[in-house]
Design a protein around this nucleic acid. Structure first.
Length: 111
RNA sequence: CGGGAGGAUCGGGCGGUCGCGUGGGGGAGACCCCAUGAGGAAAGUCCGGGCUCCAUACGGCAGGAUAACGGGUAACGCCCGCCGAAGGCAACUUCAGGACAAGUGCAACAGAGAUAUACCGCCGUGAGCGAUCACGGUAAGGGUGGAAAGGCGGAGAUAAGCGCCCGCCGUCGGCACGGUGACGUGCCGUUCAUGUAAACUCUAUCCGGAGCAACACCCGACAGGACGGCGAAAGCCGCGUCUGCCCGACGUAGGUCCGAGGUGGUGGCAUGAGCCCUGCGGCAACGCAGGGCCGGAGAUAGAUGACCGCACAAAUACAGAACCCGGCUUACAGAUCCUCCCGAAGC
RNA sequence: GGCCCGUUGGUCAAGCGGUCAAGACGCUAGCCUCUCACGCUGGAAACGGGAGUUCGAUUCUCCCACGGGUCA
């Protein structure tokens, strides 16, 4: 991903959950906040409750793919956390793509 | 053809576009090229090891594990063979399968009585006209129970009965033969004894503790402190670590411990009790010898996804390495192969 | 990733090889009261699942499932 770093620090996740703006749909929830930098930072959260390791990996990879393909459309300089919910385990790639892009549009993250 | 038993293997292949981890190469750089990239269970963490630190891991108690016998293995609670028991017409499957005859405990309810007993019954004696009662004998019959004085059958004897006696079976003990052994077969006998050890316990064998978040090293930040007593010395006490306790060992001034700080990097880290083929030994597990192959995962918020095409009946199961191996257990759509048993029909 | 615990009515929980598996709160029916509450009497409701040992398992053993703790 060209313009994006990963979020490794648990404190950044906490700050987004507490102070970021958010929106949610059936399968995913999105939190974001401006970070004052030139590039974006992305965090993906897929909890244990969603499924076992194979299911969690698949969801995480699909979410990352969706983000990668839509990266050019997004504004820059924000931290974004995408949280998978339980329903994501049964959704296919296209459903996730539709929901996630819909949330990005609702939050005004698209250029 | 139908039904069944045992074992083994696969659990995806080819191609295209974009994207990711690792290694290598090219380029001043942006970047480009090449190679490669999850499992049979990677899982549960139930056993056993390697490896690292603690003492070179040593003695006793406590604690834990295993349990017919022989072998295999680095080791095992695993595997192979074999014995015994149970089940099945059979192929075959299952078994925590030592010792209640060392001692202790427990056995509710029912039942007269639970390791010793006489409720009904049977028999004898005495009392009574009699119904019946009292005392004694008896475990063959009834009833209760998971279990009632080895089991089944029989004859004599007896007041009635009883392994009191006989035959067969079982059990225990002894002897002989076969087997490396568990054990089997045969003979003899004064043995005849409730169950339970996944109850305490006893017997035999094995086990030191912790775990890669172990451990070693580097950079930076912070805040430093303690190291005693006796003695001339040896040494003793104390303190610390090693295991719950004892014993013991080691350390006690270029070392150790406590406190503070809690951030990043490197190694450990992937060639291993490895896989394949051939030969020899062995019933087998497996071992030995020779040859070949490395078919290269190695992250540190953690790499495999999206879309499409092709053949096949279909691509749909369970499921993601985190120090590494050997097992066990659990989950699993579908496909293929081998061996064997039973039944029916035919030759 | 490693190492340890736990699971009993709706909730909190005691028990531990054997007769009805205690108790509290809650729920419910009746009584009391003009009515509600309090009080009194009664009732329903549970051993996470599956195997094994045993005459008998909530208890003992094994395997799963779920929930929690702890270690840099």
């Amino acid at each position: 991903m060209r313009y994006t770093l990963s979020i490794c620090d648990n404190r950044i996740f906490r700050r987004l959950y507490n102070k970021g703006k958010s929106a949610a749909s059936r399968c995913v929830a999105v939190y974001f906040r401006r970070n004052g930098k030139r590039e974006n930072r992305l965090g993906l959260t897929v909890g244990v409750k969603v499924g076992h390791a194979v299911v969690r990996n698949r969801i995480r990879r699909r979410l990352r793919e969706i983000y990668r393909l839509s990266e050019e459309l997004l504004i820059q300089g924000v931290d974004i956390v995408i949280v998978a919910r339980s329903a994501a385990a049964k959704a296919d790639y296209h459903e996730l793509e539709r929901e996630l892009l819909g949330l990005f549009a609702r939050l005004g993250l698209l250029k």
